[in-house]
Design a protein around this nucleic acid. Structure first.
Lengths: 156, 156
DNA sequence: TGGGCAAATATGGGCGTCAATGGAATCGGC
DNA sequence: GCCGATTCCATTGACGCCCATATTTGCCCA
């Protein structure tokens, strides 16, 4: 598979390690990035994670702003300054940093959420709440935008 | 055959596996996608399933939104995060995940409903109810629109 | 037209492999 | 030599793969 798809929940062990879902590892291997690039999600208490495609995406987002502008500074401080590159052990596990665990409120379990070119890392309960919120927002979005957005396709 | 057509109902075995209807397998084989892409439908308790054509459809919906925008995040969380890629065994069966079974209310039988470039997976009773509802809506539509909808013939 | 043979499909279960997890061993630096 | 970090190994349980059976479908021939 080319993209991060689906949702998985795994447990942290006593050393704070957690397995990256096998299907996500396969995508990362294709991507070629060494390690796991992690960047706090801007609007939620979660973490964006991925490889080269995520890094590229972040760069191009930054490029939309004038260099040395205040906005650019703020963004790069957050997107780059708060980012980390986690090492992946031979079994495909990572050790989440204290900063990440604190930001996301993670204790002993984490949820991995595929989002195509990247995935997110959540504390499971918080994710469920966010998912429900997202779902209702999408329904609303569909009502507003109409036919352009048919999850179920729609050309019948 | 190029498209998913007709309706089939099969049973789940003790391992939770169910055969994909043979004619659907033929369409999937042509499509070339490895596995079965499944995405819960937003408005019904059912699942959209298919291959590359379905994936393309979903992706193009997402592409309408700016990456990192809030709407894009909501959409990818809902559409991609809730999707799964099921493996198809050598006999043409898939094991439905707990998440899918819960969403669709599936217990020991499932109904496959062809919808052209994709098909849907339903709990049989719920599908019958949905189909009847849809049918009466069509009748009503025909009354309102008059002769325009005759050609497709309607009595089965 | 009817019987029966043959192919394909749906279904059932056993077994090996891999992924997730836990813990021990080893390597590094201070 | 101690401590943290990384690698190695071992267990468990789920999942994929294989083979077996049955039920259906279509086909051929009498």
């Amino acid at each position: 598979m080319e993209e991060f798809v689906s949702t998985f929940t795994n447990r942290l062990d006593s050393k704070g390690r957690v397995s990256i879902p096998a299907s996500f590892r396969a995508v990362l291997a294709r991507d070629g990035f060494e390690g796991l690039y992690c960047c706090p999600t801007l609007d939620q208490n979660a973490v964006d994670a991925g490889g080269n495609r995520l890094v590229t995406q972040i760069r191009s987002s930054l490029a939309l702003f004038e260099p040395f502008s205040e906005d650019h500074e703020f963004l790069s401080t957050t997107l780059i300054g708060e980012s980390e590159v986690l090492k992946v052990d031979p079994e495909g596990r990572v050790a989440l940093s204290e900063a990440i665990k604190a930001h996301a409120g993670i204790r002993d379990t984490v949820t991995f959420v595929g989002q195509g070119y990247k995935f997110q890392i959540w504390e499971p309960d918080r994710f469920v709440a966010y998912r429900d919120e997202a779902k209702s927002r999408v329904r609303e979005l569909r009502r507003r935008l109409g036919s352009g957005l048919r999850a179920s396709g729609g050309t019948e």
